[in-house]
Design a protein around this nucleic acid. Structure first.
Length: 230
DNA sequence: GCAAAGATTTGCT
DNA sequence: GCAAATCTTTGCC
């Protein structure tokens, strides 16, 4: 296992997004480390991308997107879900790749616990919500534990305290790694999800990248696929 | 200073 | 298939 090279994030974001498919997201170290393979991402590219948080210019929330590549941009959506992005391109140009789905590989019990809000220092759900969904999460198939952008953060205990963290730093509690053992995964493309507020051509830009047919794809991707079925 | 909507997920009608 | 949950950020008065 080696760290994900920062160079691969410093260039254009579409290429970076493709390179992130198959890379590993890691939380912690030792026997309790959580590891998963990234299987679905979306690219948000530049000030001109009217689907991007950076479309309004630099703000307190999106400041990290304007910084150096390799940083984590973590934000809260709908008042309850955290989403993790990997900042790309040169410092000064706002771009990032949203991690939409991860296939759990190791630390599955810890991911389940984090989804239930049991683990400390994390982004788990509130106690009442955990009560309601406890049985569901306990019996959830391993492949579905991080099958969505909000679920990735819930499973890996990521919240806005992680905003700005360097994902290419081996000492970081949350980081990106690669292995040479993994075969090259097939990659499919499609329009980004949940950006109905964006005008064309941004609405239809094929900037979502995913492993076709993978069991850990986001719910939204599965729904989208049903719609496309002919 | 206030109203509105959001790069989502879940459960119910 | 639709709406609720929930709170921060943004946009407009």
């Amino acid at each position: 296992m080696a760290m994900f090279p920062r160079d691969l994030l410093a260039g254009d974001t579409e290429t970076a997004a493709r390179r992130l498919i198959g890379a590993r997201l890691v939380r912690g170290s030792g026997p309790e480390a959580r590891t998963g393979r990234i299987v679905e991402v979306e690219a948000y590219i530049g000030l001109e991308d009217l689907a991007s948080h950076a479309r309004t210019g630099r703000t307190k929330r999106n400041a990290v997107m304007f910084g150096p590549p390799g940083a984590a941009y973590v934000y809260l959506v709908y008042g309850m879900h955290n989403c993790l992005n990997v900042v790309t391109e040169a410092e000064g140009r706002p771009a990032a790749v949203l991690i939409r789905a991860v296939e759990p590989i190791a630390g599955v019990d810890e991911m389940r616990a984090s989804r239930l809000g049991v683990l400390g220092g994390g982004s788990g759900r509130r106690e009442t919500a955990a009560e309601l969904s406890r049985r569901r999460v306990e019996t959830l198939p391993k492949a579905r534990l991080a099958a969505g952008p909000g679920l990735v953060c819930a499973a890996f205990s990521i919240d806005r305290r992680d905003d700005g963290r360097d994902l290419c730093d081996p000492a970081s509690p949350i980081r990106l790694e690669i292995t040479d053992e993994d075969e090259q995964l097939p990659i499919a493309v499609g329009p980004r999800i949940g950006i109905d507020y964006a005008p064309e051509p941004w609405l239809s830009r094929p900037w979502r990248f995913f492993v076709p047919g993978h069991a850990s794809l986001s719910i939204a991707e599965a729904r989208d696929r049903r719609g496309q079925a002919s």
